[in-house]
């Protein structure tokens, strides 16, 4: 590698600076000529204008030259683009899921990483990223890698949008959502951690083990992370987009049901209804933002179980 952060950097930046130089020359030329004319042909200096209607030769020149220049620019832009769209055969696949307002990265062995954990990849390895959205359009953007692709919800059977990259330098890089997706769009931030191959292998083994452990010990907590719930519901009592899950059982809440207020005590029945039909009862002070999730009855039970655990912790 030439030390660039990703394989696309050289192409994109070459195009960028090529256009930049052409633009700068044009701008300086035009502005310079305007300033020169203002001074030289000011009415004080030049009260009698010279009658010129046009000059065909000159007009042909400045039609032809820009045409040639823009074709060059087009060519180099296209060249870089084709590279971005051609995924190498041996690329490692990491599925990206996006929702309001979280990211999830799923590795081939089922390891899942959340927004907070970020996307961890080995250096000098092409990574293929199918992009899946569970709700609205997001955009997967790593500025340092010059990578961007919208994460568009697709109808059943349609091919997902994809992108790929090959990082060239270990380090941490910003990952942004670049398409407006609602209230917390500006907080839909994550990181890309690029590790050397050895570090990556070590990390990968560790993370996979930790996840397996969590899944067997507390399937509810694992679900909470993998479904992206913790993007909006904290487990420590702090208020995010939605109510915190801590100390929830037995709590008295005022909820809006079909526009009418009523007071309820949180129990299993209420939780089950809220998980299956999030818009049914909205706790006062919150927006009806939660999307309906496709959960199996077993998953619902696991989540309720975990919410119980969280409440017991509080009681202790």
């Amino acid at each position: 590698m030439n030390g660039a952060t990703s394989v696309f950097v050289s192409d994109v930046d070459f195009s960028f600076w090529l256009i930049f130089i052409i633009s700068a020359l044009c701008l300086v030329g035009i502005t310079g000529f305007v300033i020169f004319s203002i001074i030289k042909y000011n009415r004080k200096n030049n009260p009698e204008p010279t009658h010129i209607e046009g000059h065909t030769g000159l007009e042909i020149v400045w039609t032809v030259i820009p045409t040639i220049l823009v074709m060059f620019i087009f060519y180099f832009g296209m060249k870089g683009f084709i590279k971005m769209r051609s995924v190498p055969e041996n690329a490692m696949e990491i599925q990206v899921d996006a929702g309001m307002w979280w990211w999830k990265f799923t590795y081939p062995n089922g390891l899942e990483q959340t927004t907070g954990q970020g996307l961890t990849v080995p250096v000098d390895t092409p990574i293929y990223l199918p992009l899946h959205s569970v709700d609205v359009i997001h955009s997967f953007y790593i500025p340092a890698f010059r990578v961007k692709m919208d994460v568009v919800p697709k109808a059943e059977g349609e091919k997902l949008n994809y992108t790929w990259f090959e990082a060239g330098k270990p380090g941490d890089y910003d990952l942004f959502c670049a398409e407006y997706c609602g209230l917390n769009h500006a907080q839909m931030l994550s990181k890309v951690h690029v590790l050397s191959q050895e570090d990556y292998d070590a990390w990968f083994a560790e993370a996979s083990k930790a996840q397996a452990k969590l899944k067997s010990e507390s399937p509810g907590k694992a679900l909470l992370i993998s479904k992206g719930c913790i993007a909006c519901h904290s487990t420590d009592g702090s208020k995010l987009i939605g109510p915190s899950l801590k100390g929830l059982i037995g709590k008295t809440e005022t909820v809006l049901t079909d526009g009418a207020e009523r007071t309820i005590t949180v129990d299993d029945t209420y939780l089950r209804r809220s998980l299956n039909e999030p818009a049914a009862d909205i706790v006062k002070g919150f927006q009806p933002l939660m999307p309906p999730l496709p959960l199996t009855p077993q998953e619902v039970d696991d989540l309720i179980q975990y919410i119980h655990e969280l409440s017991e912790e509080t009681a202790e």
Binding site: F20, V34, F76, G77, K83, S139
Partner: peptide, 28 residues
């Protein structure tokens, strides 16, 4: 005259966005 200056910048920056690979980076 300010129009010519500003619009030139506007038009020239448009080329960064019309060119495919740079647009991928600069879009949005």
């Amino acid at each position: 005259l300010a129009f010519i200056f500003n619009f030139s910048i506007g038009g020239l920056t448009g080329m960064f966005l019309g060119s495919l690979s740079t647009d991928i980076h600069l879009h949005d």
